[in-house]
């Protein structure tokens, strides 16, 4: 039970990172982006490629940072991966979403994101193969935190949790303390007024993708680090991440953070009762529960 709670918190940090970007795009670009979770896959694989590259070019970097399985090479690769993923998100927006936005409605965007997700996911399968991969073949043993009740935690999980929290704190400071943050909120509230107030919309859209893509990349790498890397990361995480945004209330960044943790914890606790085969369905049950009890989520505003 407590172990499930612990695991839930660890998974939750990954979901939160994914949900922040998704909720921002849903709020400011006004569409549910079904391709968002594919950014996590892109991030995970981009880091895999650069991790391999750095390790091969500078073998000393391939040393693990004790007690983690994370290597110096992978740490560097995460930063590159954030840039690659943000770049991919901007490219997809420029080439696909911008055009659909210009000629169609919000739901055409949802529809297009559905198609984009299918293409991205299968392109990744085609390039990297269907098999699962790992960043490190080294086995890192879990640390026993407590013997009774038995509580185990892997150092990598703790690192991922702490790093995720630090990143969220930085984002919070940027959004609440800088004019850049106000600008984003202004665009979300009233795009036309934001424009005539001197805010360049295309820059803000790019910024949303940079933040969303960067966070998704980190989430993808952490998922790969604590689980494994496979082309279906996006498929498996798209529903939990959506559930996190709905729990938190669409558009609320803090809601997304809390929603991520809640969904992570609830999913793990649910498996105490349910056989593990049912785990993909749990986020849907959470969505149903939120829609029944509090349709606008914890921090969401009622909006058509």
């Amino acid at each position: 039970m407590i172990q499930s709670l612990l695991d839930g918190i660890l998974v939750g940090s990954i979901l939160s990172l994914g949900a922040i970007g998704l909720t921002m795009a849903m709020h400011m670009l006004r569409f549910a982006n079904f391709a968002h979770a594919e950014l996590l896959s892109i991030g995970a694989y981009a880091a895999l490629v650069f991790d391999g590259l750095f390790s091969a070019l500078f073998p000393p970097l391939a040393a693990a940072i004790a007690p983690l399985s994370l290597t110096w090479a992978l740490s560097l690769a995460i930063i590159i991966s954030m840039a690659v993923t943000a770049g991919s998100a901007i490219l997809v927006d420029r080439f696909v979403f911008a055009r659909v936005r210009a000629i169609g409605g919000e739901l055409s965007m949802v529809f297009a994101s559905f198609g984009v997700a299918l293409v991205l996911r299968n392109l990744i399968s085609l390039i990297f193969g269907l098999k699962t991969q790992l960043y490190s073949q080294d086995i890192v043993f879990a640390v026993v935190i407590s013997a009774d009740p038995l509580l185990l935690v892997k150092p990598d999980q703790v690192f991922a949790l702490v790093a995720a929290l630090v990143i969220m704190l930085i984002l919070h400071l940027v959004l609440s303390r800088t004019t850049l943050g106000y600008s984003l909120r202004a665009v979300a509230e009233n795009p036309t007024l934001a424009q005539v107030s001197g805010i360049r919309l295309s820059r803000m859209i790019a910024l949303i993708w940079i933040i969303g893509g960067g966070l998704a990349a980190v989430a993808g790498v952490f998922y790969g680090l604590t689980n494994q890397i496979s082309p279906v990361i996006g498929r498996d995480l798209v529903l939990p991440i959506f559930a996190a945004t709905i729990v938190g209330g669409i558009g609320s960044i803090y809601g997304a953070v809390l929603g991520g943790f809640l969904v992570g914890i609830a999913s793990n606790l649910a498996l105490v009762i349910l056989p593990s085969g049912y785990s993909p369905a749990v986020p849907f049950l959470i969505i149903l529960a939120v829609l029944l009890i509090r349709p606008n989520g914890l921090f969401g505003e009622a909006r058509e």
Partner: peptide, 28 residues
């Protein structure tokens, strides 16, 4: 003109309604 360049050209535009950002403070 691109609407965000109005200010630089020395033009200000005050829309009819929704002409302030309600969720931000006056100072913001």
């Amino acid at each position: 003109p691109r609407p965000d360049t109005l200010g630089r050209m020395g033009i200000a535009y005050v829309p009819q309604s929704d002409n302030i950002f309600r969720s931000l403070t006056i100072r913001q």
